[in-house]
Design a protein around this nucleic acid. Structure first.
Length: 852
RNA sequence: GCGGGUGUGGCGGAAUUGGUAGACGCGCCAGACUCAAAAUCUGGUUUCCGCAAGGAAGUGGGAGUUCGAGUCUCCCCACCCGCACCA
């Protein structure tokens, strides 16, 4: 029998969909809209398995929603700016634009072979002047509303690559690419005032129930709101008090020292006259990340000799230390130490023999004898040894302490955040130029609207590190738009996270003359389902949330949350292989011996199987999706990547699993082919005189429809796959007692249910079944509630909670009947014989438990 | 350290509100077809005892609640991810 020709079929249907433009989304429709989006790829060269998994899942949702009658938008684009293009330029001498365009072409071709239901008419790349020009408008709007600003700030400077590095790109104090020790430099940088929305960004997380809890928690911690107070400690012999931040103003009476960061201005000032302090500060800075790990919790300090006056307890002076555990970047860079109720402070106090005075007494402790020695007490309790706070609980004491601080002008209640403004300047060529001009006379001048977009010059020299834009002989020299005198363009480009912060809004109307078309955006946004890797949990997703608010403020659109539903998929892993001398080898080079061991295909040298790990080039455990699609077809690849593993968990790619999926593709095709001669014509209604087995089949069909629908709806694709295997298994066993009309119903249901996952196969067999219309235009099957319950149920019979037998009985039978039927089961009868029956528990339609 | 998560056969994983543990797939075993192989089909496959019927144990470990616990409570262990001296 001829095997299903996936090559021909997939090519044919991809062409057919394309010719009819079935996936082009209509902006106006009376159907409800549904916007499905997967995180757009960086055009690195080729599609990888992560893409295959991501886009397959998105495609299942898109096709399913379409079949449910939604007006679906499912677009695709390219996150096309970024450093790898410049690296390629340096290494291979190819222009970044050319390299990027070639990669896009390759990857578009690969995506098309997957058979995705994408609206390619909306394709965009962030490196298109059309796109980044619109982005420049958004930047200028932000500049106007002061959401973008320029400020001198400390940056990580890579002296070899001549560029600023993000904190994430500094690994153990060295540049991630160059390996050179990073320098701290002060540069003028552009910032987005993300902190303007910090409370809103935090509070709105509560209104995103369709986001993974994990991501919400991560963002919450990233924003890092904490309530507390500023306290001003007067310093003897100085006019300026020392301002500290605390979340525990209630424990002020337990203070036994103050400490400031090594970078604190006061520390730097004192160091001028104290070589010892200067050395200590230098040591703190040098310490860096690596040694810190070694020294772990070692708290160290240097007594400055200054004394701080306690704000509430006159006559009590506290020593002021410079301490290595105080960070300049949080709060005020200064703290007061209350050892009894903070573990770090306690460690520090124990090291330097400072007093430890408990001021919060646990309810269970005796106030007279309560002591804190090695473990700080962080819990609830009543205040003691605390003057006017005595007897209050922690919350009341916080309020009372803040009130007193404010009354006596010694401090105030406040809220601090971890979130900092977003630095977006990058000293790179391959990015969106920042559309401002620096004029000696007029200052910072926005590029006039009619001069946008500020395009990147093509003729650049990217043979050495650094900013090719800045090196360009003419590009930056322009006349000031205001005074006409010689001026300079800003030669920095925007962080590529800016590009990905609003692309989903652009998809609503990619040709619009403004960044977004208000009407289209109001219709399509927010994205109903966004799908991507969890690695973007903070930066990309937070920036996008900020951007929607910034764009709303500028009047571009009305939403503030870009993604109503978010799904984060797991990684694709593969086992690793190593030769005896430790060289990693590709899976394709390895064969399995008969005894289960592995060897090199080439020369039979033994190979050891290592851990199952994320696919990576260094471990060589990479499988190219295109190879799989080429050998087995897109439907096989899609089906396998949806099988077995829950979508949010990591999965293992295995050849055997692919084979299994391939078998199933062919099995479905064969099943249709073999059953076809028995089937009535397309559209024949169900017969009414059905055999019992035919009714059973109908039940299974409708239960499968209901289950698969629920599974797809809730992203349980692996469960949906299992249900479809079950239906197929049952169908394969169908004999002549099943009425042909039921058989047709079963097969057609199967085909429609697999269609979001294996769209080509579904179209192909749908046509074989005699349909003139396409699956893509066929509504999702509906489960008939009448068939969702069985007439008979199997009831478990337990004795003392142990399974002793089963009975089949009519659904909703009387309790007494069920009990009596259960009692007569042979095993049960012997088990309860001669013992007094203490109880009989009957769970309707489920179970009987005899307690003896 | 803090936060989030995971732990079930040889493997990936299923199991409404607590109610028949191991669906489905992979692998493996046996059989059919075949000169043979591949492909396909049929049956079996948690472990232990037993020829069998059947019995016992069993969801990382230990307690507990319950007629009944993979599921609920408490304590511990391991692994993964994120943030890491956040005052």
């Amino acid at each position: 029998m001829a095997r299903y020709n996936f090559r021909e079929s997939e090519r044919r249907w991809q062409r057919a969909w394309d010719e009819r433009q079935v996936f082009a989304a209509a902006d106006a429709s009376d159907r409800q809209k549904y916007y499905v989006l997967e995180m757009f790829p960086y055009p690195s060269g080729r599609i990888h398995m992560g893409h295959l998994r991501n886009y397959t899942m998105g495609d299942v949702i898109a096709r399913y929603k379409r079949a449910q009658g939604f007006n679906v938008l499912h677009p695709m684009g390219w996150d096309a700016f970024g450093l790898p293009a410049e690296n390629a330029a340096m290494e291979k001498g190819v222009h970044p634009a050319e390299w990027t365009r070639a990669n896009i072409d390759t990857m578009r071709g690969q995506l098309k072979l997957m058979g995705l239901s994408l609206d390619w008419s909306r394709e965009l790349a962030t490196c298109d002047p059309d796109y980044y020009g619109q982005q420049q408008k958004i930047f200028l709007a932000a500049l106007k509303s002061k959401l973008a600003y320029r400020q001198e700030s400390w940056v990580n400077w890579d002296p070899v690559d001549h560029t600023v590095l993000a904190n994430e790109q500094v690994i153990e104090g060295k540049g991630w690419r160059s390996g050179a020790p990073v320098e701290r430099r002060k540069l003028f940088q552009w910032f987005f005032r993300i902190t303007a929305f910090r409370d809103e960004l935090l509070a709105a997380l509560q209104r995103l129930p369709r986001w993974p809890n994990k991501v919400r928690v991560m963002q919450e911690r990233w924003i890092g709101r904490s309530e507390g107070a500023f306290v001003d400690f007067p310093i003897t012999g100085r006019s300026e008090p020392l301002r500290v931040f605390t979340t525990r103003p209630d424990t002020l009476f337990g203070a036994s020292f103050c400490a400031i960061a090594a970078d604190h201005p006061l520390a730097e000032e004192l160091a001028k006259n104290s070589a010892g302090l200067g050395d200590f500060i230098a040591e703190c800075r040098q310490l860096g990340t690596s040694e810190e790990v070694i020294e772990q919790a070692e708290k160290r300090g240097y007594d400055t000799g200054l004394r701080a006056k306690h704000p509430f307890s006159s006559g009590q002076d506290l020593p002021v230390y410079v301490a290595n555990f105080v960070l300049m970047g949080y709060g005020t860079g200064a703290i007061f130490g209350c050892p009894a109720h903070d573990q770090r402070d306690l460690d520090f106090a124990n090291k330097y023999q400072l007093p430890v005075k408990p001021v919060v007494i646990p309810a269970t402790a005796d106030p007279e004898s309560y002591r804190v020695t090695d473990e700080a007490y962080l819990g609830e309790g009543r205040l003691a040894n605390s003057g006017f706070l005595d007897g209050l609980d922690v919350d009341a004491a916080k309020r009372a302490a803040i009130a007193k601080l404010e009354d006596s002008s010694q401090g105030e209640g406040t809220i601090t955040y971890r979130l900092r403004d977003w630095g977006v300047s990058r000293q790179r060529y391959w990015g969106c130029p920042i559309p401002v001009i620096h004029c000696d006379h007029c200052g910072i001048v926005p590029v006039p609207d009619e001069d946008l977009p500020v395009k990147l010059p093509d003729d650049v020299d990217i043979t050495e590190p650094g900013n090719a834009l800045d090196r360009h002989p003419t590009w930056k020299h322009v006349a000031c738009p205001i005074c006409g005198r010689a001026a300079l363009r800003d030669t920095d480009t925007l962080d590529t996270f800016v590009d990905s912060s609003w692309y989903f809004a652009r998809f609503c109307a990619p040709e619009a003359p403004e960044p977004v078309d208000r009407q289209a955006a109001d219709y399509w946004l927010p994205v109903d389902q966004y799908i991507g890797g969890v690695e973007h949990a903070i930066l990309h997703l937070l920036y996008a949330r900020f951007f929607m608010r910034a764009m709303r403020q500028a009047g571009y659109l009305k939403v503030d949350e870009p993604f109503d539903g978010l799904f984060t998929q797991g990684m694709v892993n593969h086992s690793t292989y190593q030769t005896a001398d430790g060289v990693w080898v590709q899976p394709s080079e390895v064969v399995r011996n008969e005894d289960g061991s592995y060897a090199l295909a080439e020369n039979a040298a033994p190979v050891t199987v290592g851990r199952v790990e994320k696919m990576s080039k260094s471990k060589k455990n990479v499988v190219d999706p295109s190879d799989v699609i080429d050998a087995f077809g897109a439907d096989t690849a899609r089906w396998f990547i949806l099988s077995d593993s829950p979508p949010d968990r990591d999965m293992e790619w295995t050849d055997a699993g692919v084979q299994g999926a391939f078998r199933f593709v062919n099995r479905v095709s064969r099943l249709v082919e073999q059953t076809l001669p028995k089937l009535p014509a397309c559209g024949t209604p169900l017969a009414d005189d059905l055999s019992d087995s035919a009714v059973t089949m109908l039940r299974t069909i409708h239960q499968t429809i209901a289950n698969v629908t629920a599974d797809v709806e809730s992203f349980h694709f692996n469960r949906a796959v299992a249900r479809l295997y079950e239906l197929t298994n049952l169908l394969a066993k169908a004999d002549d007692s099943i009425h042909p009309t039921v058989l047709r119903k079963a097969i057609e249901s199967l085909v429609l249910l697999i269609s979001p996952m294996m769209p080509h196969l579904a179209e192909e067999v749908w046509e074989q079944l005699g349909h003139k219309t396409w699956v893509i235009d066929t509504p999702w099957p509906k489960a008939d509630p009448a068939f969702l319950v069985n007439e008979t149920v199997t009831i478990a019979v337990q004795v003392n909670g142990k399974l002793r037998g089963k009975i089949d009985i009519a659904r909703d039978s009387e309790e007494d009947d069920v009990r009596e039927a259960a009692r007569t089961v042979e095993n049960v009868a012997t088990a309860i014989a001669g013992r007094p029956l203490r109880r009989a528990i009957v769970v309707p339609n489920r179970l009987v438990n005899f307690v003896v």
